[in-house]
């Protein structure tokens, strides 16, 4: 570790991941996609943070930025710091990055169908990161790869097969096995269960929770599914149009919801106790990420919006030590949302 990195060490050693004012843009020929705008997150050792938000909110871009793997061009990390165990991923040399990726931090990618290399066997693909990071020989690495396969519920004999011989759900599990192969401190799981059926989904979630308990792995768990969040996450960050509009512990977000968008997400869930109740999807669409408003991006869809919301640049406000919300309406101390009540009528 060089001097500069040591300087970056925070007194708060507990944080495995610390994202500080991260901004990621995709600069295209005639427009700029503002995918991630000035977000900050802290994640402690052994905790799972759910990162939820609509499609296009910037979840995957955030995870890629943590690995310093934003495709460039067109992606540009405009500003910010991403500290993993105190080291800034955005300042590491190529060589240091290669050492950290796959061993300290790894990622389960969203699309398992395209994330595996078609010309290498799944065993080889899992063994590769083991061989790179644990400096062992190919034979030992292949043995470990087979163990990893059985860990995710695939018969180890199938290590010699190629991705095209696997079903979608099995590919997803291979992708998971690759990410877990070297026991990372931090795991970025990008919708790891979307391609799986319900039983397998439960198994994979169990696997992750086990991993957290046994290895003390920290995780960012990206998902659309608030049910999964309730099941496995300790903390939640809600993302909208490239901003984290509300974050806090599971209890903060689920039981003390503050942001109108978070409330909208809950309202759009099917109600288990009252199956005949109509779903209340949030009306409208997320704004075009190439033309974000100066103020609150959710305002056009927000039932509580006031004229000044669109104009006022939003700042994060603390609700409690752990709970933060980005909604200027709370500058008025009497402002309340009516979670669980019917609104959009």
């Amino acid at each position: 570790m060089n001097a500069e990195n040591r300087e970056n060490l925070r007194p708060d050693q507990e944080n495995v991941l610390e994202i500080d004012h991260l901004t990621v843009h995709y600069v295209l020929e005639d427009e700029t996609v503002e995918a991630v705008n000035d977000i900050s997150i802290q994640l402690k050792k052994g905790k799972i943070m759910g990162l939820v938000g609509e499609t296009g909110a910037g979840k995957t871009s955030t995870a890629l930025a943590v690995l310093n793997l934003i495709p460039d061009p067109p992606g540009v990390i405009r500003s910010g710091r991403v500290l993993i165990n105190g080291r800034d991923m955005l300042k590491l040399s190529k060589k240091e990055l290669e050492e950290v990726r796959g061993s300290e931090v790894s990622m389960i990618f969203q699309d398992p169908m395209t994330s595996l290399n078609p010309v290498f066997t799944v065993g080889e693909q899992i063994a590769e990161s083991i061989r790179l990071h644990e400096k062992c020989d190919q034979k030992k690495a292949m043995e470990r790869a087979e163990e990893m396969l059985s860990l995710v519920g695939i018969p180890p004999e199938r290590a010699a097969e190629y991705p095209h011989q696997f079903s979608g759900g099995m590919k997803q599990r291979v992708v998971i096995a690759i990410a877990l192969a070297c026991n990372p401190h931090l795991l970025l799981a990008d919708e790891p269960t979307t391609a799986l059926d319900v039983t397998i989904q439960a198994q994979v979630l169990d696997l992750m929770v086990n991993l957290k308990q046994k290895m003390n792995t920290s995780m960012i768990f990206i998902t659309h599914d608030l049910g999964i969040v309730a099941e496995i996450c300790d903390e939640v960050a809600v993302m909208y149009a490239g901003r984290i509009i509300e974050r806090g512990t599971l209890d903060d977000i689920f039981n003390h919801t503050r942001h109108p968008y978070t409330e909208g997400l809950f309202n759009s869930l099917p109600d288990i106790d009252n199956r005949t109740a109509e779903l209340k999807p949030i009306p409208g669409l997320m704004p075009d990420p190439t033309m974000l408003p100066k103020g609150c991006a959710f305002a056009p869809r927000c039932p509580y919006a006031r004229p000044e919301c669109i104009e006022t640049p939003q700042k994060e406000q603390a609700v409690s030590d752990t709970h933060f919300v980005m909604c200027s309406a709370y500058q008025d101390p009497s402002f309340r949302i009516q979670r669980q009540e019917v609104f959009y009528e």
């Binding site: 690995l67 793997l69 495709p71 190529k94 990055l97 290669e98 050492e99 950290v100 990726r101 796959g102 061993s103 790894s106 990622m107 990618f109 699309d111 395209t114 994330s115 595996l116 290399n117 078609p118 693909q125 590769e128 990161s129 790179l132 990071h133 992708v175 690759i178």
Partner: peptide, 16 residues
């Protein structure tokens, strides 16, 4: 060169 599986390889720490 832009395929997802190269991204997977890079994320594993495979040298460029």
């Amino acid at each position: 060169i832009r395929s997802d599986y190269l991204r997977t390889a890079r994320a594993k720490g495979v040298p460029e």
